[in-house]
Design a protein around this nucleic acid. Structure first.
Lengths: 177, 177
DNA sequence: CGAGTATATATCAATTTGGCATATAGCAAA
DNA sequence: TTTGCTATATGCCAAATTGATATATACTCG
């Protein structure tokens, strides 16, 4: 599945500019499991427009470039429906954190602690973003499903790290005194 | 963190060819949270060799290209240690599955079921690969840590999907009769 | 008053992927 | 038996993607 289908999907909920799509990907419901940069979003929108799958409407703004608001067309909705019918590719998960932890015994304990705390923080951020989305949210069956999944996975990760951090804690307190 | 550090890390456990590194990434301990293709591994190894961070030894083979076995040098181990000291980048997780599920109500139920079953299967594969690695494994503190994390996260995901599948099941039996 | 953040689009070098080419051999199914 | 699949092994390359930067303005916070 490519970024074009991704944009169609987001636009199918609400018309948006490239900037807003990026924001949605970073802070919205999608943030946990989707990534895309401006360098891929803007060309994708141009292409979709050229193919007639979306339309553009320029909204004038003072002091800023015109906001280009994109909306899906009927053809776009059809393309989305078709694009969603492919068997999804296997999940891709990249974690520098876990790679680093593999070399735990080579690393200073302070660094290990910091890395774990950062990771825990990231997980909690993701979780609270989900809670927010649910609160505001125009939730549907689909969003309930994915947020349930995200919550399950993130909570499990956080719980594991908390227990590991607790094992580390006592040593530090002694070292600090 | 770049692929060069990744290769150094894998080679620090055992000397290997590019092919074997790729296999390790696909099937080994790393498979859950690392991804890299030949197109990035081979250039990385050449570069590491040029920088004196690894050495190469050609192993002759009948019917196949010579196997180029790479080993880390002392400079390589130092570079790895240094490379591991950076604050790890935030995890990246991409899931076409979750994106598709967001549009659950647009999709035929059979497709939804298939997608969930595939996802569940993927998670179980990852889990059993981990169990294998542990069984064979030259395990250390680091590998125990990351496999514990992986197990926690994957198990939570699988559990969630199992419960969702159970909710779906009855309707199907009726439909099949 | 300067630094940082936010809005908004766009480009581009560098990296990375995913597929292909090349070559050989074993194994299973049609 | 021959066709296709899998495995071993390296490598290239077009296409996709990232991450940083450019451009421009306005608001907020110390």
């Amino acid at each position: 599945m490519n970024i074009r289908t991704l944009c169609l999907g987001i636009l199918s909920f609400q018309e948006a500019s490239g900037y807003e799509i990026k924001k949605e990907i970073e802070e919205g419901m999608f943030s946990h499991f989707i990534d895309a940069s401006y360098g891929s979003i803007y060309p994708a929108l141009s292409q979709l427009n050229a193919e007639g799958l979306v339309t553009v409407r320029a909204e004038e703004q003072t002091g800023r470039p015109d906001k280009k608001v994109y909306s899906v067309t009927e053809a776009g909705r059809a393309a989305l429906a078709k694009g969603l019918l492919v068997v999804p590719a296997r999940d891709k998960y990249k974690s520098e954190f876990l790679f680093e932890m593999l070399f735990k015994n080579m690393l200073p304990e302070a660094h290990v602690r910091l890395a774990i705390e950062k990771q825990l923080n990231d997980l909690r951020e993701d979780l609270s973003r989900m809670v927010e989305c649910r609160a505001e949210g125009q939730t549907n069956e689909g969003s309930e499903f994915i947020m349930g999944y995200g919550e399950a996975v993130l909570t499990a990760g956080a719980k594991y790290l908390e227990s590991k951090l607790a094992e580390l804690q006592p040593k530090i307190k002694l070292a600090a005194e």
